[in-house]
C-alpha cells in the first residue's frame, strides 16, 4: 500500500531538482532596516541601468526586418502542404491510399480516386480545407510515399484560403521535377539517415 505522502509525491523525482537559495525573511524591525539599508547600498538599480546602457552602446541588434529579411526555415517546419513528384519521371508521388484523409484529426483532407487507363489508382481530385487544418503534420507523417509534405511556405495571406489548396498549386511543377531541380525532400516525414541498416532485407530469386 502506498501511503498518502507517497501518493502525493508519486510524480516527484528524488533527484534532478535545484533548490533555490532564498534568504530567510527578516523578522525583527532591526533586521528589516538592515535589509533595506543593504539593498540600498548594493546599487542593484545601477547595475540594471548599466546593462541596458551597455547593450544600447554595443548596438548589437537582433531584429530581423521580416518582409525584407527572412530567416531560413527548418526542414521539419510544418507550413502549407506541398504535393511532391518523383524525380526525373515527374510522376505524382501520391498513390491515393487515403491514409492522410483517414488520419487527419481535423477532417480537412478529402480526395477522389478512380481507376485510370492503365488500371492504376489515380487521384482525380484532392483538397485540404486550410480553414480547418491545424498543421499537426500527421498527414505528412503517415504518407507512405512522401507525397504530401509540409513545405516552408509560411506566408499564407490571401483573399481566399482556397488559394492554398488548389491541387495544381500544391503540386511540384512538372518541369522542375523532370529537370531534377527539386531537391530530395529532407523535412517532416522524410526517411531518416542510415535507414537501410535497420531494415532486414528480403531474399530475391533474380
Amino acid at each position: 500500500m502506498m501511503s498518502l505522502e507517497q501518493f502525493e509525491n508519486r510524480n516527484v523525482s528524488e533527484n534532478g531538482y535545484y533548490k533555490v537559495d532564498i534568504e530567510s525573511y527578516p523578522e525583527t524591525g532591526w533586521e528589516k532596516a538592515k535589509q533595506v539599508f543593504s539593498r540600498t547600498i548594493r546599487g542593484e538599480l545601477f547595475v540594471g541601468l548599466w546593462v541596458v546602457m551597455r547593450e544600447m552602446l554595443k548596438f548589437d541588434i537582433h531584429t530581423v526586418q521580416y518582409p525584407k529579411e527572412k530567416l531560413p526555415v527548418g526542414p521539419r517546419y510544418r507550413a502549407v502542404h506541398e504535393m511532391q513528384r518523383l524525380w526525373e519521371s515527374g510522376t505524382e508521388r501520391c498513390i491515393g491510399c487515403g491514409l492522410c484523409e483517414k488520419i487527419c484529426i481535423s477532417d480537412c483532407i478529402r480526395m477522389d480516386t478512380r481507376i485510370d487507363e492503365n488500371s492504376r489508382k489515380e487521384v482525380s481530385e484532392y483538397t485540404i480545407n486550410l480553414g480547418r487544418c491545424i498543421f499537426c503534420g500527421y498527414c505528412a507523417e503517415v504518407c507512405p510515399e512522401l507525397a504530401i509534405v509540409h513545405g516552408g511556405r509560411y506566408e499564407n495571406t490571401s483573399e481566399q484560403r482556397a488559394h492554398f489548396t488548389d491541387y495544381e498549386d500544391m503540386l511540384t511543377p512538372f518541369d522542375m521535377a523532370v529537370k531534377g531541380q527539386v531537391p530530395e525532400y529532407p523535412g517532416f516525414g522524410a526517411v531518416t539517415p542510415h535507414e537501410d541498416e535497420r531494415v532486414k532485407s528480403t531474399p530475391l530469386a533474380y
Binding site: 541596458v52 547593450e55 541588434i61 537582433h62 531584429t63
Partner: peptide, 13 residues
C-alpha cells in the same frame, strides 16, 4: 527607439 536599442531591437523602421 531607445527602449528598442536597449533591448537589442530596432524599433519603428
Amino acid at each position: 527607439k531607445i527602449l528598442a536599442f536597449m533591448q537589442r531591437r530596432l524599433g519603428p523602421m
